[in-house]
Write a protein that binds this DNA or RNA. Structure first.
Lengths: 273, 273
DNA sequence: GTTTGACCCTCCCATAGCCGGAGGGTGCAG
DNA sequence: CTGCACCCTCCGGCTATGGGAGGGTCAAAC
């Protein structure tokens, strides 16, 4: 038999506001131990303090209530711990990403903005080993890891020295999820391989700039290039391409990564007077 | 003279959705370069891509639009960079805190819950050097740093060996901001000192438990103690006290920190049973 | 010249996770 | 009996969007 307290006392015990407790009751996340049928007054059991505390900690971590619910409503301790561990892993990944972005913004402050140099090029059609997938923006890092792992493996076995790259559909940027193709260019008579597709990538004109530095500042180069293209070119439909001139496999320091960003355009613009 | 693009093109260039651009226009964060008076069509200048990109990056970091605004509307580059740096510092502190909480939750999974031992004690009134402030929960770490720095300094000069502590008002927990008093007990005839107040802390009964481990798991002990108090005691008004038996100045490893948490109660409860 | 289809506009509604307030009932103490 | 602290429900507001209705606009194709 545990004691029971009013909502106000419970609020003081758990440092959850009365409003919040009402809300949790409404959505059925934390139901009071009993409710006085005549007055409607809520009473909470002192044994509920622990759950409430857990909820508060998870909320402090910005965990959505839906996820909190799945943790606290887990049928047994093992399930609960597994749920919790999953969410914590997820949050830690998110934290790392955020740290990266903060660092990259900070470096943007210290480093002067290098003037953008854009090159126009016609890239003929070519054949390539491809890994094609529908990818969420959040999962792009790991996805690239496996995709290029596979392609590098094949490249090593066949002695292919071509520069690998990837194409990113518009939807990938617009809806945070879209088709991504990791590709490794090969000769037209290359035999098929397990686990990858052999595709022909279309020819086209591109406005190209080289991004130097880690992948986390990509959007800066994207922005500059996009601005440039909008100003001087006619944009063509089709995915944006990246060519990994120097990537994680080639140089150790992300600051030395070099990537060509290729923005599809209709034609090479006439030089302005 | 820069080119101008429709909202759809601008959306593709900046990877901000049309809806979002509408919204930023509504709130005056990113106003289109021009608006066709007859059709109402928005046109964005290509020179606006940079700002839009910055906004997007800051939003990716969950920065509230109000803060984003203060960054992008800064009158000059120096002000803007200062703003940005401040916000980034803030975010990094937040990140560290979140990491701590994640770590502490994770350790909660691996470590078994030690049974709570609660002691009841009457603490007489005493005089202390105090640093009194209205503190936000988010700033408590740095605040304690300076407050106890000052107190430790005085303790060293006067050869005081008493255990320092702090009191936290209810509002500090409830509203995330409230009065906090860092105190260092002294003899009743102690002379005044610059930078600290000489106050008498009131007597009272307390339910006390010792928390072992870093400050980040405090709420676990708070929860257990709160539950215990609610079950067996009558809660008294007044701030909660902490006594830092072994803190950052005493032992190197946060896992060895020992802190008494003192919850005010009306009287020592009669043993049950 | 018109028709298609892609684009654009403005409104309103919905989401999460609460906070604040209005308007009213409850419970205990003086 | 009055005061006061507490509790209730409901309603609206906040941030930062997304979704959709209902309707105008623009280019090219027929």
């Amino acid at each position: 038999m545990t004691a029971s307290v009013t909502i106000g006392e419970f609020s003081r015990l758990t440092h959850l506001s009365v409003k919040t407790l009402h809300h949790y009751h409404d959505i059925g996340l934390l139901t009071p131990a009993s409710i006085d049928p005549s007055s409607g007054y809520r009473r909470y059991g002192t044994d509920q303090v622990g759950v409430a505390q857990l909820i508060r900690r998870l909320r402090d971590l910005q965990m959505p209530l839906a996820q909190v619910r799945s943790v606290v409503e887990a049928p047994d301790v093992v399930t609960r711990d597994r749920e919790l561990r999953t969410h914590l892993d997820q949050m830690e990944r998110e934290l790392v990403r955020t740290q990266d972005v903060v660092a990259s913004l900070r470096s943007m402050l210290t480093l002067p903005l290098t003037p953008l140099s854009v090159e126009y090029r016609f890239i003929p059609a070519f054949r390539a080993y491809c890994v094609v997938d529908q990818v969420d923006r959040a999962d792009i890092g790991p996805w690239c890891g496996t995709a290029f792992g596979r392609l590098n493996d094949i490249a090593a076995r066949h002695g292919i020295t071509a520069t690998a790259g990837a194409t990113y559909s518009d939807e990938f940027f617009a809806d945070d999820s879209g088709q991504v193709i990791a590709f490794l260019p090969v000769a037209p008579d290359q035999p098929a391989e397990d686990g990858v597709e052999l595709l022909d990538l279309p020819a086209g004109f591109f406005a190209i700039t080289v991004h130097t530095g880690p992948f986390t500042d990509f959007d800066r180069s994207y922005g500059s290039l996009g601005g440039h293209v909008a100003e001087y070119c006619e944009v063509a439909p089709g995915p944006i391409r990246e060519l990994y001139l120097a990537g994680p496999g080639d140089v150790p320091d992300p600051a030395d990564f070099r990537t060509e960003i290729c923005w599809p355009i209709q034609r090479i613009p006439a030089p302005k007077g």
